[in-house]
Design a protein around this nucleic acid. Structure first.
Lengths: 335, 335
DNA sequence: AGCGCTCCCGTGAGCGCTCACGGGACTGCC
DNA sequence: GGCAGTCCCGTGAGCGCTCACGGGAGCGCT
């Protein structure tokens, strides 16, 4: 591959005009050659193509996009690509977008609020709409997304934006009911620890626990990784050795807890029942298979794309009541 | 073939001029208001902002990109977002791209060659360069990527494009050597089955087996999922009940085999040793932890981005010998 | 010659936006 | 009054490309 190495000089962008000049034809002829249009002699076409290659010409997608504005690009902002839950959502969104012929740009904020803003700033001039998990204040969000459709996922507070609510109340209630029915009374929770305030999933847990008349104070924050889940379980069992069941913020933490339980010689589910949240496909691969409050990630992705479509078309958006994905207890081996 | 179907269905696009007219100011003032520029009265600014919101104005990212061409977007094409290996690579590429201030657009082809072409067609006018896994003929590839830098991953044949080679020969050799040292002589393989020809990883396996003087004919094709791995193991053990160790095309298949072995009452590694390929983080979560020929996905992603950078700048590209990621045997519980 | 037709190719216009510049209105100060 | 300075705001130009036209050249036919 031979490219003109711009030695020292500013590598001035090569435009269609440079190619035209080099091939001794007009812009339009170059355009015709590159786009496989009709009205062009095959010899001329080859000459243009050669000239373009020799110059290392790359058409500007902006200029092209400007004139024929037929592409829609959605920005998908997620906290962590390595967390399977988000990749499941991303895959679902990608699939839903594909049926519309839309592009999806994926961004990873690393679960840090400051990255969110940076990403948002960049994104705002790159996409036509944004779908994502955001933990930053709503004001900041609005500032960077002026006039752009935004669909939030899993944000609980009432908001000016469209938000797909994840409602796990019933699912968590069912999970606790299941544990209680199995005879458990000392149920702990491994929560998300990076947020200052307790998570909504934790609230669901305490509510469910209260409904069953059991204590819900045995909570330990966990890093959003399997190792974090393991460490948190160790801490929890250290503080409350009589715990016989744990509910976790998500499946990754649960899987770490599963592993840690094995290391501690606790048989799951006999000595320790574990129930996760998310319902990852991954949960079926571990031993024992994970019981979890499962979310339909495909529906989640599809809903988000659907709502974006409505916002973009200026049509009637889906109401908040329709923008809900409900967690459902899926029983398996671990509880 | 997926073509960009008529995406936006708005009757008429609202431009900056419409907002200007509506607010009774000039284009430039609108621009100033929207971009938080200085030379504007705060009252005017608010009036413009209100007008923009009332009209539902969204700036064109193409026009904006045209005039200040400072954004670089890389297209990352992977076969399956739900396979953790690819998300690890994607995460690595995203991270490497971020340090350069680049965007990454992720595409999922579903491991189907026809999707690759459709994706390529769409992508070619959307990104500045392409990184990806492609199984389609090179000619097709070139046709859709005219003049655009392309970096392939894991393609073995010599190619006109830059390609990052995955070299597992030594790693697989070490894996087989390890199994032989443990006393195994009947080693089977669970290969990838969707390609017509046998995989390169299979060749590495037969070569390594030959070097150790053991038979390598016990091969079963597997679907690229855990279930596929399980089914393939069952088939393999049905055909060759004396097999005591298996090497798999990748970790997902290996994890499925692990689970199936447990169901069949075979203890791993005592009754059946399992060695995977890829070295997924996921491998550490299953029981027993997976022994695998590990690839450095971060290096893979970083290399790809680095090469793209060199191709784009017109500078000297990395040579084929530098574009290699080598698999390395990482011992763990399963073998 | 004149006409119509096909095959190529070029020219003007414009997509929607930002940048550089110019300029009016108003202030303060000599 | 004159001048500089500040604060706003508007105008022309142009980013790189494609689309809609127009038009020359060559052909065959009347």
């Amino acid at each position: 591959m031979v490219l003109p190495s711009a030695a020292g000089t500013e590598p001035r962008k090569i435009t269609i005009n440079d190619v035209a000049k080099s091939a001794g034809v007009s812009r339009q002829t170059v355009s015709r050659a590159l786009n496989d249009k009709d009205e062009i002699d095959s010899d001329t076409k080859q000459r243009v193509l050669d000239a373009a290659r020799a110059l290392g010409y790359r058409p500007s997608r902006f200029a092209r996009g400007l004139v024929r504005q037929d592409t829609m690009t959605i920005g998908l902002v997620i906290p962590d690509l390595l967390n399977p839950f988000f990749t499941e959502v991303a895959a679902a969104a990608l699939e839903a977008a594909r049926t519309r012929g839309w592009q999806v740009v994926v961004y990873d904020t690393g679960d840090r609020a400051e990255e969110e803003l940076g990403t948002l700033q960049v994104i705002s001039s790159q996409v036509d709409a944004v779908i994502g998990y955001f933990s930053c204040p709503e004001g900041e969000l609005e500032k960077f997304t002026r006039g752009m459709p935004v669909v939030l996922i899993g944000r609980e507070q009432r908001t000016r934006f469209s938000a797909i609510r994840i409602d796990g109340a019933a699912g968590v209630h069912a999970a606790v009911a299941h544990l209680v029915a199995q005879g458990h009374t000392r149920i702990g929770m491994l929560d998300h620890h990076t947020r200052a305030e307790p998570s909504v999933r934790h609230e669901w847990f305490t509510t469910a626990a209260a409904a069953h008349g059991i204590e819900a104070g045995m909570v330990v924050g966990a890093d959003q990784t399997a190792d974090g889940g393991g460490a948190a379980l160790r801490t929890l069992l250290g503080e409350h050795p009589d715990v016989t069941a744990v509910f976790t913020f998500n499946d990754i933490i649960a899987i770490g807890a599963l592993r840690e339980a094995r290391r501690l010689g606790r048989n799951v589910p006999r000595d320790l029942a574990v129930i996760g949240f998310d319902g990852l496909q991954l949960g079926a691969l571990v031993e024992p298979p994970l019981t979890s409050v499962a979310l339909d990630t495909r529906q989640l992705g599809a809903l988000a794309i659907e709502q974006v479509a409505r916002l973009l078309s200026g049509g009637e958006a889906l109401a908040a009541d329709d923008l809900v994905v409900r967690g459902e207890l899926r029983l398996s081996g671990s509880a």
